[in-house]
Design a binder for these strands. Structure first.
Lengths: 211, 211
DNA sequence: GAGAAAATCAACCGAAAGGTGGAGCGTAGT
DNA sequence: ACTACGCTCCACCTTTCGGTTGATTTTCTC
C-alpha cells in the first residue's frame, strides 16, 4: 500500500462520528483526518485539510448535506463525497447524486460494505448500495413523468398547509383556474386520487417537506 | 465503585453500535454486555444477559423499539430502558414513555449528556433531554385536546391514502355521515383547516405514518 | 423556427367535502 | 346514578374540489 486513504467525517451525531472513527481506525488503509458537525464546518475543514473522501450525512444543522456537497464541488473538486445517511427517499438520493455525490450508502449497511464503498469512492468509482441503486433506477425510469415543475411544487406545498385553491391563488398571484390546472397536472404526474393523496405521495418521494 | 453498570445496546446500525461501544468503553463504570440489531433480538438478549440499562433505538426492523420496550416491562422489569433515537416527534416520545422507557435522549446529544443519562437511568431516575422534556410538557398541556381516538386515527389513515369519505365509510362499514363526523372532530383536535392539513399535522406529530 | 413543455386564464358542471344541529347507544370513571 | 366521551347516524345547506374543454403566452430544446 502506498498511501492511506484520508477521510473527513461530517455528521452531527457524536455517536456516529465516534462509531465511524472506531470502525475506520481498524482498517490499515484508512485514516480519519477530520470531523465536521455540519455543512459549513465541512467546507472549512475541506479547504484546510487535504483528503480523498468525505463521508457526509444529509441532515445536518446550519448547512445541510446536499448544499454542502454542491459547494464542495467548486471549492474542492478533487474530494470524493460518499453520502452516508438513514434517508433513502427517491428525491434525497437523486438530489445528492445531482449535487455531485460519488456514492450513496445507508447507515444500516454492514461494515464491510462501508469499507468497500470508501475504497471504491477513493478511486473515483461511484458506489451505490444495492437498495439505493434500485430506487434510483426506478426513479429514472419514471422521472420524466413524475417530476413536478417548480411552480407545481410551490402550489403543492401550500396545499399541504391546508390552504384552499382560492387562497393559494391569492398567495401566488394567480387566478383560481390556474391553481386548479396545476393541481390536475400534479395529480396526473403523481398518480394521486386527490390533493391529500398528492401531498402524501410527494412527502414520501421527498418532493416536499412538512413544516 | 462497587459494580460496573452493565449495558445492552439495541440499534440496527452497525456504525451506531460501534460508536456507542467505543464511547462507553472509555468510561470506567460502564460495561457493554450485549448488542441487539432489532427488537426481538433485544428481548432474547435481555432474558439471557443480566444488565442494568438497555440503550434502544425506536426504529428497528422486525420488532420496533416501542413494542420491544412494552414487552421488556413484563419479561425483564428490572431492566431500565433509555431510548436513544433521532426522532423527536411528540407521539414517538409519548409512546415510548408510556411503554415504560425510563429515559429519552436524542442521538445528537453530546457524549457527556449520554453518560449522565445512563448513570441517572441505572439508578432508576428518569432522564429526559432538555429538548425532549419541553416537547413532552407541551404535549401534556394540550394532550386532552389533540389526542385522536383509535377510530379517528383509522379514518385519517385512509384519508391520507386519498380515499373519499364514501370509500372510507365502505371500508370501515360506517355511514358517510359518521366519517364526516369523525373528520370534523379530527379537524378540531388538530386545528386543521381541511383533510389535507389534518394529514400533514398528524404526520408531523407522528400520529399516522405514510406508506 | 418548429415543437414541447410550462404557465397562465375562462366558463362550466356534478360530485365531494365542509359545516350546522341535532340524536341515540355504550362504556368507563367519579 | 351521573357525567364524559367515543362511536354511531340523519338531514340540510354551502362551499370547494375535481374534471373537461379550450385558449394564450413564454420559454426552452432540437
Amino acid at each position: 500500500m502506498t498511501h492511506k486513504i484520508r477521510i473527513i467525517l461530517a455528521d452531527d451525531h457524536p455517536v456516529v462520528r465516534d462509531g465511524l472513527k472506531g470502525m475506520l481506525g481498524s482498517q490499515e488503509d484508512f485514516s480519519v483526518v477530520g470531523e465536521a458537525v455540519n455543512g459549513e464546518d465541512l467546507l472549512d475543514l475541506a479547504r484546510k485539510v487535504p483528503a480523498e473522501v468525505a463521508l457526509v450525512d444529509l441532515r445536518m444543522p446550519v448547512l445541510d448535506g446536499v448544499s454542502a456537497i454542491a459547494r464542495l464541488r467548486e471549492s474542492c473538486p478533487a474530494l470524493r463525497v460518499l453520502v452516508l445517511t438513514t434517508y433513502d427517499s427517491d428525491a434525497d438520493i437523486r438530489r445528492a447524486v445531482e449535487a455531485g455525490a460519488t456514492g450513496y450508502l445507508l447507515k444500516d449497511a454492514p461494515r464491510e460494505e462501508l469499507f468497500n464503498a470508501i475504497r471504491q469512492t477513493s478511486r473515483g468509482y461511484s458506489y451505490l448500495s444495492p437498495a439505493v441503486a434500485s430506487r434510483l433506477v426506478d426513479g429514472v425510469r419514471s422521472s420524466d413523468y413524475d417530476e413536478l415543475s417548480p411552480r407545481e411544487v410551490e402550489v403543492l406545498t401550500l396545499v399541504a398547509q391546508g390552504r384552499a385553491n382560492k387562497e393559494i391563488a391569492r398567495s401566488l398571484r394567480l387566478s383560481e383556474a390556474t391553481v386548479k390546472s396545476h393541481l390536475l397536472h400534479i395529480f396526473e404526474k403523481l398518480g394521486a386520487a386527490d390533493r391529500t393523496h398528492a401531498v402524501t405521495i410527494a412527502v414520501r418521494k421527498g418532493i416536499i417537506r412538512l413544516e
